[in-house]
Design a protein around this nucleic acid. Structure first.
Length: 424
RNA sequence: GGAGAGGUGGCUGAGUGGUCGAAGGCGCUCGCCUGCUAAGCGAGUAUGGGGCCCAAAGCCCUAUCGAGGGUUCAAAUCCCUCCCUCUCCGCCA
C-alpha cells in the first residue's frame, strides 16, 4: 500500500511512475474521495468534541444534583447527527481503503522501464554450460526413467500439476531442503522458522496477495483459511502489528514450506514435469530492514540465494525485472534463472524482491529509532527464494544427467544423501 | 465437540457507567546524588487519524482497554455477535 498522504500530494509523480508498469491509475477519483472524506471527518470530529465537552458538564451537574435535561436533549440531537454522518464517513473510508489496497507499488528509480519479460536486462551470468555429447533429456524423461518421479499416479491421487516423488527422488528433495536451510542458517546468519501453512485473510492482505489475487489461492471451503502460496506470507506476518527496536534490524529469517498455487490462467504453460505445480517446496528468505539499508540488503539476499546454485554447480544468470514485469507489491526484483539443458534456456528458480514499505504499511510493521525517541518508522521488507526446491531438482537432474540415464549428485549434496554419488 | 475461566499500556496488575488514556509496581529514558556498583530522589515514558505550522518542536481535537455492532448525554465498565488464550472432559497425530 502506498502512503495515502504522498498519493494525495504527488498525483503527477505517482501516476507517471505507475504508468511504467502498464497501469493506468485513476487518481482523480481517489483524490475526490479523499477530499470528501476529509470534510466529513472534520465535521464528525467537531461534533464529537462538542459532545465530549458537554457530557463532562453533565457529569459535573449530576454530581451537584443540578438539572441537566436541557443539555442531554441537545446532545441527543448531536448524537443523531454524528450517527448519520458516520455512515457516510465509514463508507468513504472503506472505499478509499479498497482503492489503496488495489494500487501496486511504485517501481524503484533503478528499475529499467520496459513492457514485459522480454525487456528484462541481464545482470550477470555464473557457471559454464556443460557440453553434452548426447542429446540431453528432460527431467521428466530422466525422472520417470529412474523411477523417481511418478506423474501418472500423482494424477490419480490428486490431479494435474502434482507429482509423486519416489526413492532417491524423494530423498533428493529432502536433501536439498536440508542443505539450503543449513547453508542459510550456518553461513548466512538467518534464523530458521517453520511457520503455519494455512493463514488468515489478514496475513494475505498484508503481503499483497489479497484482495487482488484471490483466484491464485487455495481457500478452505468451511474455514476462513488459505493455503500459503509462499512462505513470504506467514514469515512476513511474524511481525505484523509490531514495533521493533532499531537494534534488532536487519532481521533475517529462513523458512522451508510447501507452497500452494492454483495457477489459474497458466493453462498450457509447463504442463509436463515439475516446473509448474499446484504444490511445491520452497526455502524462503525474508528480511526486515531499515529503509536506508534495504537496497544493500537486497544485494545480500540475492547473493545468499545465488550461493545455493554455486555450491550445487548449476549455471545461472541474474536478470532485473523491468517495470512492466514487476510483481504487484515489489519495488525492485531480481530473478535468478537456472540453466535447463533440455529447453536450452534459463528458467526462473528464485525471485528476490525489495518491497520497501509497501507491505510494512499494510502489515503495520515499524521500528523505533535508537534511543527510544521519535515516532515509529515503517520498516522495509524483502524476500527471495533460496531456492525453489522442485526447480532445483529439475536443474540437477538435467545438468548432471549421464548418457546412460543416471544422474551424478553434486558434491555439496552428497553428505545429505548418505554419501550417495549417483542416482541410477 | 461439551463445561468453565479469562483477554486492559513494553511487562505486571487495579479498575462494574461520568472525576479513566486509564491507579500501583516493574522496565526504559533524562537529570540529581553516591569514590565504583547497588540503593535513593525528581521528571518523563502508547499508537493511529485530523488541525495549527514552510518544516521541526510544541499545542489542540479525535479514536483506540481482543474485534465488530448495540444501549446511553456519557462505556474499559451494561447488552449482542465473533475471534483468541487457559483449565477440565471427550476425540485425535
Amino acid at each position: 500500500m502506498l502512503d495515502r498522504r504522498y498519493l494525495k500530494n504527488n498525483k503527477e509523480d505517482v501516476s507517471t511512475r505507475l504508468k511504467t508498469r502498464g497501469e493506468i491509475p485513476n487518481l482523480e477519483d481517489f483524490w475526490a474521495l479523499e477530499q470528501k472524506y476529509g470534510e466529513l471527518l472534520l465535521q464528525v470530529e467537531g461534533l464529537k468534541a462538542r459532545r465530549n465537552k458537554v457530557s463532562a458538564q453533565v457529569a459535573v451537574m449530576k454530581r451537584n444534583n443540578e438539572d441537566a435535561n436541557k443539555l442531554i436533549s441537545d446532545m441527543q440531537l448531536v448524537g443523531e447527527q454524528i450517527k448519520a454522518l458516520e455512515v457516510d464517513l465509514n463508507q468513504k473510508e472503506a472505499e478509499a481503503q479498497q482503492y489503496l489496497l488495489n494500487i501496486p507499488n511504485i517501481p524503484h528509480a533503478s528499475v529499467p522501464v520496459g513492457k514485459n519479460e522480454f525487456d528484462n536486462p541481464e545482470v550477470r551470468r555464473w557457471g559454464i554450460l556443460r557440453a553434452f555429447d548426447f542429446p540431453p533429456k528432460s527431467h521428466v524423461e530422466i525422472g520417470e526413467g529412474l523411477g523417481i518421479l511418478d506423474f501418472e499416479r500423482a494424477a490419480k491421487i490428486s490431479g494435474a500439476r502434482f507429482c509423486l516423488y519416489k526413492r532417491q527422488g524423494a530423498q533428493l528433495e529432502r536433501a536439498l531442503i536440508n542443505f539450503m536451510l543449513d547453508l542459510h542458517t550456518r553461513q548466512h546468519g538467518y534464523c530458521e522458522v517453520l511457520p503455519p501453512f494455512m493463514v488468515n485473510p489478514q496475513s494475505l492482505i498484508a503481503t499483497g496477495q489479497l484482495p487482488k489475487f484471490a483466484e491464485e489461492l487455495f481457500k478452505m471451503a468451511d474455514d476462513n483459511y488459505y493455503l500459503i502460496p509462499t512462505a513470504e506470507v506467514p514469515v512476513t506476518n511474524i511481525h505484523r502489528d509490531e514495533i521493533l527496536e532499531e537494534e534488532q534490524l536487519p532481521l533475517s529469517y529462513v523458512a522451508y514450506t510447501p507452497c500452494f498455487r492454483r495457477e489459474a490462467g497458466s493453462y498450457g504453460k509447463d504442463t509436463r514435469g515439475i516446473i509448474r505445480q499446484h504444490q511445491f517446496n520452497k526455502v524462503e528468505l525474508v528480511k526486515f530492514s531499515r529503509p536506508e539499508d534495504s537496497y544493500t540488503q537486497l544485494e545480500i539476499l540475492l547473493h545468499d540465494a545465488e550461493m545455493v546454485l554455486q555450491h550445487l554447480e548449476i549455471p545461472y544468470r541474474i536478470i532485473t525485472l523491468c517495470t512492466g514485469d514487476l510483481g504487484f507489491s515489489a519495488a525492485k526484483t531480481y530473478d535468478i534463472e537456472a540453466w535447463i539443458p533440455s529447453q536450452q534456456r534459463y528458467r526462473e528458480i528464485s525471485s528476490c524482491s525489495n518491497f520497501e514499505d509497501f507491505q510494512a504499511r499494510r502489515a503495520a510493521i515499524r521500528y523505533r529509532p535508537k534511543g527510544g525517541k521519535g515516532k515509529p518508522v515503517l520498516v522495509h521488507t524483502l524476500n527471495g527464494s533460496g531456492l525453489a526446491v522442485g526447480r532445483t531438482v529439475v536443474a540437477i537432474l538435467e545438468n548432471f544427467q549421464q548418457a546412460d540415464g543416471s544422474v551424478i549428485i553434486p558434491a555439496a549434496l552428497r553428505q545429505y544423501m548418505g554419501g550417495m554419488e549417483k542416482i541410477g
